[in-house]
Amino acid sequence: MSYLAHKKLLLIFLCFYFVAGMYVVDKYPFFNWALFTKIPNEQSDFTIEITAFDGTAYDPALPFSESRFIFEAIGQSPTQYTQPISDLGRALERTDDEAVARDRTAVEKMFDGKSFSYNLVRISYDPVELWRTGSYKEEVQVASYDSNHAP
């Protein structure tokens, strides 16, 4: 292949990557590189509070955002469970029993099979206000689960 042919191939590849990334947004291997693009204003989401883990009861319940020490002890990361927790909450909101069972299974894989019980909580908050005051604008418990009782 001549230099000119290589040049055309390369330029087409670069243009294709740009167009594919911006159009497809996020489908492997194309990505629009929109990382931390949106400024998170007031949020509505779901989180969990751990009421017991591996025989240890937590009263008051341990917020998920403060549970890193448990994950570190078993070589896991809490970040991989933030999306499954949100998915579980949304499935519950739309009363999709199949999705609830599926998402509960995904959430309860955390802690590497060790038993735990938790409350699923719907929250709304302003991120900066939450950081400064430690308080949600709204906090409603929507369900309680025990990983020993399979979905």
Partner: peptide
């Protein structure tokens, strides 16, 4: 806002 949202997550 980015920090306050992502760091706790």
């Amino acid at each position: 806002y980015q920090i306050a949202y992502f760091v706790p997550r």
